[in-house]
Design a protein around this nucleic acid. Structure first.
Lengths: 215, 215
DNA sequence: TAAATATCGATATTATAATATTGACTTGCG
DNA sequence: CGCAAGTCAATATTATAATATCGATATTTA
């Protein structure tokens, strides 16, 4: 119904809160009570009532009832639907170094319906091998393979020096979103999303905190 | 001089921009010109002049000169000093699984003067072994080892289920900042910083983007 | 030496998100 | 059957950060 304007209005920060709601809701004991109020959620998650209500209003088609609250199952399926967790996302990973291997072997992605279906690299000795059940292909194969496997997400764990080049190949191969672990600023065509996982930024905050502490 | 109030006012988002400034500045060719203006930086980094100037004013003791700009070296050392990169930070890592190994072997931390000096785990077969030159100790040793090695940062790459427990041990061992890669919300005493590297949050944004695209 | 200009730093404006407030609506209980 | 309590949803306020504007100043050049 109001789905169209909704997504435009939801801020990135709000979207980031959704997984936390989801985890919280899934950990609730629905046996005793299948309802939850925004007030209780806010208190438990250390947020504000209004904020939680606004977020929930975005993602859930059903609204809460006074004196009763929200039905937990509705909220869970609402958030999962909004995030697309009810529709699997296929990804490929480029750069099978230490970090790449770690991501290829990480089991946690299953619950987010993210499936890494293949890896790419340029190192001869890696090509053809399997890492946690995922085959490593030469990078040139991406153009051919991604469309066939219906891949929408590209994960870049290649060195910064080649990150842009790798990114271009993946975008050309049809990925719509790039999850970038390389410390490089990628430029992409309009409409493609780049989500940076920049450890330098996090380290800056850590380091700054420690520097302040020293004073 | 005005260092005291300065750090209070710098937002996390501003701190996150600092590594980008640093990288940009280091890549400049100082042979031809050892100065840079905030206007040029802003244009190259796709930011606003005023924003860049405000950020630089925080981190650099020397101010820019009209018609001339800032001395590149001054900015670099200013940012590095502000972030504490001129004073090495020692860290330990808890949880030597796939991700833990990747971080232990990652060379990129050197440029941020972050040194991972040891790892902890509970798995018998890992204890005593070395991963990329770093020894793995039993978790109980943290309390003893961290103070002796002057460790200030704890990196948590343990499973979510035990993350809080691990965190408590590290905090007790004297770390002042925790870099948390586990998908868990950690609670710590006042004054301890937790920097979450939450992949679920990033995935939410990616997934949401793709869901929007599908419409 | 005076005018032009690039650049700075400070300030004002706008946009956005977080927080607080208010009124209305169900339900349960006296 | 009506009143109190719990909860929602909408709105108003505040806080924060991003963006735009403006006057001041140092350097260059005519």
């Amino acid at each position: 119904m109001k789905d169209d304007k909704i997504t435009q209005l939801m801020s990135h920060q709000a979207i980031r809160r959704l997984p936390h709601y989801l985890k919280y809701l899934k950990n609730l004991d629905t046996a005793s009570n299948d309802r939850i109020s925004a007030a209780v959620m806010a208190a438990d998650l250390r947020l504000y009532e209004g904020l939680v209500r606004k977020d929930l209003a975005f993602v859930s088609s059903v609204s809460g009832k006074p004196r009763v609250g929200f039905k937990i199952d509705d909220l869970i399926s609402g958030i999962e639907h909004f995030l697309g967790y009810d529709m699997p996302n296929r990804a490929v990973l480029a750069g099978a170094g230490h970090l790449g291997k770690a991501l290829l072997c990480y089991r946690g992605f299953e619950s987010y319906k993210l499936e890494i279906v293949a890896a790419f690299d340029v190192a001869e000795k890696l090509i053809g091998s399997e890492i946690c059940g995922k085959e490593v292909f030469p990078l040139e194969k991406a153009r051919d393979l991604c469309p066939r496997l219906n891949v929408r997400i590209g994960i870049i764990t290649a060195p910064a020096a080649v990150a842009q080049e790798v990114c271009d190949i993946l975008v050309d191969a049809g990925v719509l979103a790039v999850w970038n672990f390389a410390p490089a600023q990628l430029s992409v065509p309009r409409g493609i999303l780049v989500q940076n996982e920049n450890m330098a930024e996090s380290l800056a905050i850590l380091s700054n905190h420690l520097t302040e502490k020293r004073r």
